[in-house]
C-alpha cells in the first residue's frame, strides 16, 4: 500500500543513521584493515542503500509484490554483471 503514511520519527531515525554511517565510513578508511577496508566500505554503503530502498522508497510498506520482484531482479542482474565480469578478469593469466 503506497499510501501507508510512515511516521516522521521513523524518517528522522533513518536520516540520523545514514549521517552517522557516512561519518563511520569516512573514519574507517583511515584505519589500516588490509583488504577489509574495501569490504567494510561496501558493507556500510549497502546497508545505507538498503535503508533508503526499504524506508524512504517505501518498498517495505508496498503491498504490490511486483515492485519487490523488480527490485530483487534488478539487483540480481547487476550482481550477475559485476560477479561474472570479475570472475573472468580476476582469473585471467594474461
Amino acid at each position: 500500500m503506497s499510501e501507508h503514511v510512515v511516521s516522521a520519527k521513523t524518517y528522522i531515525a533513518v536520516w540520523l543513521t545514514l549521517l552517522v554511517l557516512t561519518g563511520v565510513t569516512a573514519g574507517v578508511a583511515f584505519i589500516n584493515l588490509g583488504p577489509f577496508n574495501t569490504i567494510v566500505a561496501l558493507v556500510i554503503a549497502t546497508f545505507k542503500a538498503l535503508l533508503v530502498v526499504l524506508i524512504f522508497m517505501h518498498v517495505k510498506y508496498t503491498s504490490e509484490k511486483m515492485v519487490k520482484v523488480v527490485v530483487v531482479s534488478a539487483v540480481f542482474f547487476l550482481l550477475l554483471l559485476l560477479g561474472l565480469s570479475l570472475a573472468d578478469y580476476t582469473t585471467r593469466l594474461l
Binding site: 557516512t22 565510513t25 569516512a26 578508511a29 583511515f30 584505519i31 589500516n32 584493515l33 577496508n37 566500505a41 561496501l42 556500510i44 554503503a45 545505507k48 542503500a49 533508503v52
Partner: peptide, 13 residues
C-alpha cells in the same frame, strides 16, 4: 552513497 566510498576512500589508511 556508493560513489563516495569507491572514488574518495581508496587506500587512505
Amino acid at each position: 552513497i556508493y560513489l563516495f566510498p569507491l572514488l574518495y576512500l581508496i587506500d587512505r589508511k
